[in-house]
């Protein structure tokens, strides 16, 4: 029987969307999962612990079109401290923009890491509109895709999945801009203030 280690590579892991995605994954997963946030100080511990798992799932956001730097640093540590038994690597990546394909380069970076370090690549889920989708009526699209991901990893029928809000680009911009205006309002910041063109000024 396999066992899945879920590692959250979000810089704000304890309050991240990635954490919520990991929880949904664990809920639908038929085999045991163990969850950890990647922090600045636990890299070695996580690398050593990986040996006991058949699979690892990296859950992380897209940052500047690639891997968040803290997660990149974790991979560098993992490269230098490989576990005795190497689990199959699956990925659940989410990005803020609508198009799940914007995550592709980051996935290719993980694939390169795996090839170089002799890990087998498992399933991939690329989520678009990941900043907000769980707070909208389109939550079902993310949940369905994460369930498919969880089943594929547990059954070892590895596959690639995509999901996002079923909205036109124009509608997405509209919805996202309302979301951000309300977000600013919570801090007493008006839309006009958020739209300032000045930088550090």
């Amino acid at each position: 029987m396999g066992k899945i280690m879920i590692l959250n590579g979000s810089p704000r892991a304890p309050i991240s969307n990635s954490k919520q995605y990991a929880e949904i994954f664990a809920r639908f997963c038929k085999i045991e999962t163990v969850y950890h946030n990647i922090t600045k100080t636990n890299h070695n511990e996580l690398c050593a612990g990986m040996s006991g798992f058949s699979d690892v799932l990296f859950v992380f956001p897209l940052y500047a079109d690639s891997l968040p730097v803290g997660f990149l640093d974790f991979l560098k540590t993992l490269e230098n401290n490989p576990p005795v038994n190497k689990p199959t690597v699956s990925v659940l990546i989410n990005c803020g923009f609508l198009e799940p394909e914007q995550n592709k380069v980051a996935v290719q970076m993980i694939e390169l890491f795996c090839r170089r370090n002799s890990y087998v690549m498992g399933s991939v889920l690329m989520l678009g509109s990941g900043e907000a989708i769980l707070k909208t009526p389109f939550k079902y699209a993310a949940v369905r895709a994460i369930r498919n991901l969880a089943v594929s990893v547990a059954d070892k029928h590895y596959n690639t999945f995509n999901a996002t809000m079923p909205l036109s680009k124009k509608m997405f911009c509209l919805a996202a801009n309302i979301h951000w205006s309300l977000y600013g309002k919570k801090f007493g910041t008006t839309k006009k203030q958020m739209q300032t063109m000045r930088i550090e000024g």
């Binding site: 940052y63 500047a64 891997l67 990149l72 560098k76 970076m109 911009c173």
Partner: peptide
């Protein structure tokens, strides 16, 4: 590193998001 910027440059590029607004366009 792994086909992306290594740590030093990537850290700075991530810190450059104040030059953008939250708002989204096509």
């Amino acid at each position: 590193r792994y086909g992306g910027y290594d740590t030093v440059m990537k850290t700075m590029l991530e810190r450059a998001i104040p030059v953008q607004q939250a708002f989204i366009r096509i």
